Amino acid sequence: MRIAFFVNSIKGEAGYYTTTALALAGMARGHDVSYLTPGDFVLHPDDNLMIRATNLKNGKPKKADAFISALQGDQAEIQTINVSEIDVLFLRNDPSEDADERPWAAHAGAIFGRLAAERGVLTVNDPEGLIRAQNKLYFQDFPQAVRPTTLISKSFEEIRVFIDEQKQGVILKPLQGSGGKNVFKIASSKEANLNQIFEAVSGEGYLIAQVYLPDATAGDIRLFLMNGRPLQRDGAYAAFRRVPAKGEVRSNMNAAGTPAAVEITPKILAVAELVRPKLVEDGMFLVGLDIVGDKILEINVFTPGGLPDIAELYGVDLTPEVIIALEQKVEMRKNYAGRISNRRLATL
């Protein structure tokens, strides 16, 4: 089959990305791999949806850095093809990266992904589900039992009152964003630099004030779910602890967080089970849960990362499981053409 990975930019891809690991796993199983970016869709007057797919001219590098180097160099070529020539469109972009400088690009994947799905291309995660998940407000649709106490507002006074009500302090962050950008721990509304923090975070729109969970000092647990279930093979879970750097409240990898092995307990699995029905309903094929204790801090549905870290920590590469699941879905689509929606197929 042919898999097209939709990313923010090919120049911005790296060997340690989960997308790279998935692409290598696909090629290792004999599939053709292409890359797309937000400007690579063309809708013709006859309603044919075309894509400008970046492919390697020849060879299939087996090492991540060699693959990315080839993809970004003169070994790559762009071919304009009908979207029907690909079997899977895997949406793996981070909308927040384009929100400021290229707002037109932020949701191009979900918008054109919906058109691809209408034309019979398996598109994951389901684009209509992703459109509903454009910011962290999506998290509020999940069971209250898994959500920390949260206030969403643009009013400084509302947020000050909320801070004073939380004895353990709060985490303040923008509603739209990722990667740990503009995330602050606030202990009291009397903090001298609170106005400056408000200004920095509110410049991006609405703010989230979330009660601070003391267990977060040890970091959060990133757990991958596929088809609504924890991704695993023979009891080895796709999960790791993201440990924050010394003096840092954020555990994100791009904020100097480090990966560590973690044991997946029944309590963690119970948390995952609570969000499973909603994820399945929305066609969320591959997601990452960020868990602290019995609460989920975030649900990453666009481009959850960490599968290469998991492979290094445990010596178990789970990316082939993802590709095998896609193979099975493509086969199901052939057998049930026209009788099963993209959203349903995405999590079967």
Rank of each mutant, 00 (worst) to 15 (best):
M1I: 13
N8S: 07
E13Y: 11
Y16E: 13
T18P: 00
T20R: 10
A21D: 10
A25H: 06
G26A: 15
M27L: 14
M27E: 15
G30I: 14
S34H: 12
Y35A: 04
Y35E: 05
T37D: 03
V42R: 07
V42D: 09
V42W: 03
L43R: 09
L43K: 07
H44V: 00
H44P: 00
D46R: 03
D47A: 08
R52D: 14
N55R: 15
L56P: 13
K57F: 06
K63E: 15
A64G: 07
I68N: 09
I68D: 08
S69M: 05
L71K: 05
L71D: 06
G73S: 15
E77N: 06
E77L: 08
V83D: 01
S84H: 05
I86Q: 02
L89W: 09
F90S: 05
R92A: 01
P95S: 05
A99D: 03
A99W: 01
D100P: 01
E101R: 10
P103F: 02
H107N: 08
H107F: 12
G109I: 09
G109H: 08
I111K: 01
F112L: 10
L115G: 00
E118Q: 04
R119T: 04
T123H: 11
E128N: 02
G129C: 04
L130G: 06
L130Q: 10
I131P: 04
Q134A: 05
L137M: 13
F139Q: 10
D141W: 11
F142H: 07
T149H: 14
K154V: 13
E157I: 09
E165C: 01
K167E: 15
P174V: 01
I186F: 05
S188C: 07
K190Y: 10
K190S: 15
N193G: 15
N193C: 14
I197A: 13
A200Q: 13
V201H: 01
S202D: 06
G205D: 07
G205Y: 04
L207C: 11
I208C: 09
A209T: 14
V211Y: 07
V211A: 15
G219Q: 01
D220F: 02
L223P: 03
M226F: 07
L231N: 04
D234M: 03
D234C: 00
A239P: 08
F240Y: 11
R242L: 00
A245S: 10
V249S: 04
N254S: 12
A256Y: 05
P259E: 00
A261F: 00
A261Q: 03
I268S: 06
V271Y: 06
A272S: 08
L274F: 02
V275K: 09
K278F: 10
I291T: 05
L297N: 09
E298G: 03
E298S: 08
I299G: 10
I299E: 12
V301R: 00
F302H: 15
F302N: 15
G306N: 01
G306M: 01
G315K: 10
I323F: 09
I323V: 14
L326T: 08
R333N: 02
N335P: 02
Y336T: 04
Y336R: 09
R339G: 06
N342P: 08
R343T: 14
R344Y: 08
T347M: 09
L348N: 06
L348K: 08
L348P: 03
